[in-house]
Structure formats: structure tokens, C-alpha cells
Design a binder for these strands. Sequence first.
DNA 1: GGTACTTTGTGCGCATGTTCACAAAGGGGT
DNA 2: ACCCCTTTGTGAACATGCGCACAAAGTACC
Lengths: 239, 239
Amino acid sequence: MSPRQTNPKDPVSGLPQKGIPEATVARLPVYLRALHGLKDRGVATVSSEELASAAGVNSAKLRKDLSHLGSYGTRGVGYEVEYLVYQISRELGLTQDWVVAIIGVGNLGRALAGYGGFASRGFRVAGLLDADSSIVGQHISGLTVEHTDQLETIIKDHGVSIAVIATPAAAAQPLCDRVVAAGVTSVLNFAPVVLNVPEGVDVRKVDLSIELQILAFHEQRKAGGPVGELPNGYIEVHQ
Amino acid sequence: MSPRQTNPKDPVSGLPQKGIPEATVARLPVYLRALHGLKDRGVATVSSEELASAAGVNSAKLRKDLSHLGSYGTRGVGYEVEYLVYQISRELGLTQDWVVAIIGVGNLGRALAGYGGFASRGFRVAGLLDADSSIVGQHISGLTVEHTDQLETIIKDHGVSIAVIATPAAAAQPLCDRVVAAGVTSVLNFAPVVLNVPEGVDVRKVDLSIELQILAFHEQRKAGGPVGELPNGYIEVHQ
DNA sequence: GGTACTTTGTGCGCATGTTCACAAAGGGGT
DNA sequence: ACCCCTTTGTGAACATGCGCACAAAGTACC
């Protein structure tokens, strides 16, 4: 074994402490979901091969990912499902509750508010906000929609740390600025714009249109490359 | 310049032909959106620095990305906005129309059906399908919801090549199997499951819950690492 | 206690992606 | 025609991610 590069542990707690690769972090939730499924079916122990297959990845990758959290498997046997659920949950921060506000209550905001995966995994929706007064006051998924005027109050009163932005493009940046100023440090953005945030604030983006365009690219590849209609409109063709 | 490794061109058409890195493909739609914004504001020419800033990336990366498409800039000047829009659109396959079916018309499916970014960029929604007979027959965004029994017929009649799956988890895989069997080769999956598809079919996944968990991980990091409750009571913790 | 079998954890080489820094290319002024 | 200024396109160094293949570590059975 090389000196002390891999799987570093905190000398105090003995728990793995930092340097989990981003690619690994992005897959942990997938493993967690697969493990919950196994647990619900009463499975007590699982091998890397089985779990990898359920999660749609290769087993070496799964083992390496898990090794970043610590050495939680038993050679010759596999991983104890329940224990692994706990370890991954803890690493992802799901053993504590996160308070979420949803900004923008159109169809998408409604879909998000009603999404079961929210409450079930440590995320609590504390507020639904919209700028449209015909929507304000409606009851959705047990919450009353409030006006965005109340944004700062709601964020501070409930201790919101994650904001979900599901507004039209034009409204997104100004609202983002306000939630950040009010103390939010993580933003999940569904609006089709690039949000600018100060250092220390995380933004993740979900964009339907981008996903479709990526699919279109590959679809076109399968069909035999870009459609060859030469740039008629462009006299100065291709250079 | 090295032999013939970078920016390969097809000897016949003179157009760049293959090997655009996946990471680049994922950013092209972002550049395209930024370019549309510039175009709408009447900007004719843009430098890599300006465009990169609008797209939220570093300018060297932008230039390298664009260089994979060809040499479309002018040194000392920048890129002609309209021409670049055309080139990226063509590369992404947006100069042709793609026919899309949305499977599952809950809140999310409705949000997707009403999403403007669809129609505006070469994606035509040809069908909305749901298994719930109380939803079938409703008119949404100019379309009538049809029963999933009609799935094969609709896909074949309209030549659907991209399916958007917005159903509950349990329904996703069986419906996916059916759309693939009916000829669809690209799937955009919003259901929280890993879809298995045959070789040659592309699947992209959008998962709210995973995004939130990734944010929670980083949020926890900012707050000082995993909550240190040692595995004392891990026995039942948080389900 | 020993042997055979299973499955983890990881070293290592390869592939992909990112960033710096600069030569080359073009525009514009004189 | 020449020089200076701006900005592209890209070589090269670095960083991250992936997957094979195998030693190490455990179980099971006799």
C-alpha cells in the first residue's frame, strides 16, 4: 500500500473524512435508492456485483466508490444492506433534515411540491412562493402558496438552506439573488438560465431542453451525421 | 501542428465529422442558448471571452469546444453570432424536427407538455399518453391525452423517435420496453428508476431527488462534515 | 486446523476532461 | 507595406475518472 493517499480517515473519529470524488458523490444516491429497494424486499446482504447491477454500473466502480466511504464490506460475503444504507445516508447528509423552499408554483413547481421523494428522504418543504397573486393562497400538497414578497421572512423563519427555483427564465436571477442574500447556500435551478452566485453557494441545474438536445445529437449520429443541407442562406459557405 | 489527430474533417464534405467529446456535446446547448440571447439583443459578433462568460464557462474551454466543430471564428474579432448559431444547431441535429411522445401526464408531464423550450427548438410533441382513464381525453397544450394502449400505434404513425417518460417508478420499465420495441431509440427518463435498454438506445435521466441529495452532501460539507453521531443507534435511524 | 472458494479493496495503466499560455492569424491605422 | 493590437486555435501539463485484474481477507466445510 502506498503511504497515505487513499481512503484517508480522520484521526479522531476514525471515519473517512474528505476527498470523495464528485463522480462518486453523484452515484451514491443511486446506490442508496437501490439499497432501499433491496431492504424493502427483505434482502439483508448484497454483493457488489448484485448492487452494481441494480444501480446500472460496473461492479469495480461500485466497490471503488464505496471504498471512499470506508471499508464497510465483508470479503467473501458482501455488504450488509441496512448498515450500508446508514453509512451512505450519513455521508450524503440525509441523517439530518434539510429545509427547502420552492420558488415558482407553475406546473413544474406543483409537480415538485407533490413529489414523494422529497419528504421521504430528509427534505422538508417549508414554503411555496409565487409572484402571481392568482396563485398565492392556493393550497397545494398541504401548504399554502405565499407571495414572493415574503421570501426573506420565510427563508429566515424556517431556516431554509436549499431553494428550488422553478420560475420563468427572466425571474430566476433576481429571485436567486434574493434567496442567496437571505442566507440560502444551495440552489437547484430549473429555469433555463445560467445563474450567477457568489463563492460558497452551490448551484445545480436541471434543464429539459438541454437533455433533449443531447439526445438529438446522438440520435442524429445514429442516423448518419448532421443533415447535409449546405448553408444555403450563407453565401460564405463554411469558412 | 501534429499529423491529423485534432479536428478531423471528412475528406468529401470538408465538414468536421466525428469524435466530438461528450463533455463538449453537453455544453453546446448552453452556448446555443446564450447565442440566441445575444442574437435577440441584436449582437452580431461575440468574442470567446464574452460568450464564455454568458454561458458560465472558462473561455479556453469554450474555444476548444467550438474548435471541435470547425474553425468558425475570426482571430482578432470573434465569432459571428448567427453563423455560430447555425453551426451548433446543425451539429446538434436541430435543423431537423424530432418527434416526441410524453408518457405519463401527471403534474410533471403537464409541465413538460407546456414547456415552451420544446416546440421552439425543433422538438414536436406528437402525443401525450397516460394509463389513467380519468386523464385520458383531457386537452392539454393543444393535444388530447390518449391511453397507453395506443402507444405502439402513436409511435409508429407519427414516427416518434424520442420518448419522455414521466410516470411513477413502477410503470417506467414496462413502458420503456414497449416504446423501444415500437422503434424509439432515445429516452428521457424522469422516473426514479434505472432503465434497462438494449444496445443502441440512449437513455438520459433527470432525477430531482438525486440532485437534492448531491446538494445536501455539499451543504453538509460547508457545515463541517457528516453529523458525527457514531453508529450507535444506526439500527433504525431515519428509516 | 487446513484447504477451497468467494468477494472485497485497490494498484495501475488508459481515457477523458480542464486549464494555461502562446504562436499564428487577422484587422486597422498610418 | 508595415507595425501593433486583439483574439483565435491548440500543444502540453495537469487533473479526474474508469475498469481490469489480482492479492488479501474473509467464510464454509471437512
